[in-house]
Design a protein around this nucleic acid. Structure first.
Lengths: 225, 225
DNA sequence: CTTGACACAGAACAGGCGTTCGAGTATTAT
DNA sequence: ATAATACTCGAACGCCTGTTCTGTGTCAAG
């Protein structure tokens, strides 16, 4: 005898669809949808069935419900709500270690290992969901004007345009660093953000792995030591 | 002939009370109150009267309403919603100019001149509403690991404990700077965040005006120049 | 085949809620 | 005083919405 297994992993396709609809509806209307609206947009013809799924989503902790209250549902915790962007903290970044890129599978990161950033703070159209964050360990990034304990938000990338700040792994030197990237005739120039410091010049033969572009740096100054 | 004047300034006492109730109710229940609930808690015995005030608040731009939708009201713009903190941008900070402290009157800052920061990002109990933000202009703060264009979030303060990062105005030198603050026997030591740089030593006779404590630094790296 | 858990449909019910209307009172302008 | 405006009340209307109940089809275990 064995436990019943859900069709696909944790959530059925319909659960996911409802979840997505609630999110998009809320973004557009500023308030949650009604049960009937969910039914219409998710091809469910009966309110009781929607209710049925909503109950399951509540039990599994994906939403909260205020029974009896109209549209009294809301996405819980790990779903970015409103104008917030939730970014997974996928580890630390330091000079001597490679960059931990988050496993590209789904948003299965817990609320504890992530940070929230207001949409309005995000530059341009980086509102993509593939951003990730790293905590800086050590003073090795001071030439990038980044301190020990700072949080850097990155967008995964394998290449970059000139002038963009990138996180690179120099396998020949066993070194991770954050620099402005410039491709030149004879190789690459990695320019520190601090104008008083000199660039790293790389020949074309030296390996240079771009891991991501720096989108934002956040420093909490609560070290009341 | 003259325009009708509202009883007290812009908003009547009852308008303010309704606004406050909506805010507190939303914080507690995660969704807006109904018209009847507003009536009960604001000592208004008729739903039509609540509706009457809600209409006015909508016209004056304090709330938005989704008519016909249950609890379809929301506080607009300058009211921080959910887990967001809205911080006024009160100007720029640069070496040669004093720090523009926001006029301490009410939260009458527009949405454009402010930034939003997630509560969860805020250190400790800085959730106070008296924070303000400044945009760094120029490279004069590089010794504080702060770049041109960075945003610093400050908490107003006139004094500081040792080790705290403060924004100070040195009137004798006509200089604004961000440094770690240490009081010593013979005066003050202002320590740059960049460990490779030397501190500023001040004698007790030199004027030192602490304007605020640095709470957070945010750097948007969207200069795809 | 029977059983039972699961997914789904449809209808009916009851209460919540925004809206509207008629009417009364207070405040202020003319 | 008179009229206009602001404010308040209570009740009724009707839609919107969550809930519940009955019934159907599927599929795997016993």
């Amino acid at each position: 005898m064995m436990m019943m297994v859900r069709k696909s992993k944790g959530l059925g396709e319909r659960h996911q669809r409802i979840l997505d609809f609630i999110a998009s509806y809320q973004r557009e209307h500023k308030h949650p949808p009604s049960i009937r609206e969910i039914g219409e947009h998710c091809d469910i013809s009966s309110t009781s069935v929607v209710n049925y799924y909503l109950d399951q989503l509540e039990k599994s902790g994906h939403i909260e419900r205020d029974r009896k209250i109209s549209r009294g549902m809301r996405l819980t915790g790990n779903t970015p709500l409103g104008d917030m962007l939730r970014i997974p903290m996928s580890g630390v970044i330091q000079a001597g270690e490679p960059i931990p890129i988050p496993s590209s599978d789904f948003n299965t990161f817990s609320a504890e290992d992530s940070i929230e950033v207001a949409m309005s703070l995000m530059p341009a159209k980086e509102k993509g969901k593939d951003l990730f964050a790293l905590k800086v360990q050590g003073d090795s990034m001071i030439d990038a004007m980044i301190n020990d304990g700072d949080i850097v938000i990155l967008k995964p990338a394998q290449d970059a345009r000139n002038g963009e700040m990138v996180a690179v792994w120099l396998s020949d030197r066993n070194e991770t660093t954050l620099k402005y990237y410039y491709k030149e005739k004879e190789g690459y120039r990695l320019q520190p953000a601090n104008p008083t410091m000199k660039p790293i010049m790389l020949k074309k033969t030296e390996a240079l792995e771009i891991k991501g572009k720096v989108v934002m740096v956040i420093r909490k100054v609560d070290r009341y030591n």
